[in-house]
Design a protein around this nucleic acid. Sequence first.
DNA 1: GTAGAATCTAGACTTCGCTCTAGGTCAAAC
DNA 2: GTTTGACCTAGAGCGAAGTCTAGATTCTAC
Lengths: 137, 137
Amino acid sequence: MVAESLSIGDVAAATGLSVHALRFFEREGLFLRGIPRSAGGHRLYDAADVEWLLLCNRLRESGMPIATLKRFAALVRSGPGNELDRLELLREHERSVRARIAELTACLEVIHGKVTVYERHVEDGTAAGLWAPVPSS
Amino acid sequence: MVAESLSIGDVAAATGLSVHALRFFEREGLFLRGIPRSAGGHRLYDAADVEWLLLCNRLRESGMPIATLKRFAALVRSGPGNELDRLELLREHERSVRARIAELTACLEVIHGKVTVYERHVEDGTAAGLWAPVPSS
DNA sequence: GTAGAATCTAGACTTCGCTCTAGGTCAAAC
DNA sequence: GTTTGACCTAGAGCGAAGTCTAGATTCTAC
């Protein structure tokens, strides 16, 4: 079983990241290994890199800063023995995602309330509860 | 009933925004009126400004960009007649907040899955499903 | 074997949303 | 009446997370 190698363009297509972003990620040390190069200097990725990037995407989409992702990558790179640290980092992120969902849900109630007020207004022409220009007093 | 006027510091305390941010918001045209000034040039806010800022906070926390908030403020400022536009803007934002919650929820599943894998590992010492350093092949 | 697409590096640039600085003025407490 | 703290303006600066450019090189398909 020969490991297929993927070009940066392939990986960009597979992960949704731009080739610029992939090079940027590498500079930032977000990969689990040094990406090998072809004779001509082109990057040669493999399926495991893509898999890792897909997890990175989830972490990033859910609001993890690059700096934290970098710490996580460093923990994984440094091998077995720090699983508790990795666990703590992931748990902390999970907490923050749950908190963010709760915050958004609270905002949603307020926003939906406003939407309802405007819907009612548009339907029957009352102005109650609407933001109107400040009356000249 | 005399409208109490509030200093920029009072409003900062009441809204959680910094005085810098309040001046920035004003420059950006995010208020519903021109904020009046004292004889000495200090800003004089009132309770309605605070109320509006609290809504702005909810919109901002839920991910509305300044530019959109600006459009919304402009609609409100321009008076009655554009309620449908305001409604559409709010509905669109509501949609985006719901979508964001859904996205976060999907990420959460992946993250929680990882947490579970690490918990199991830390408990009983298996390495299955963990990111390990790339084996030297 | 050559045209055109993809990739390379280093580093400058962009956007967003404030934050901070400098150099003053104003106001409230003692 | 002076000190101290809050406030003023204009504009520079910052951190995050890429994006883009230039100019050179490599790879792929005909």
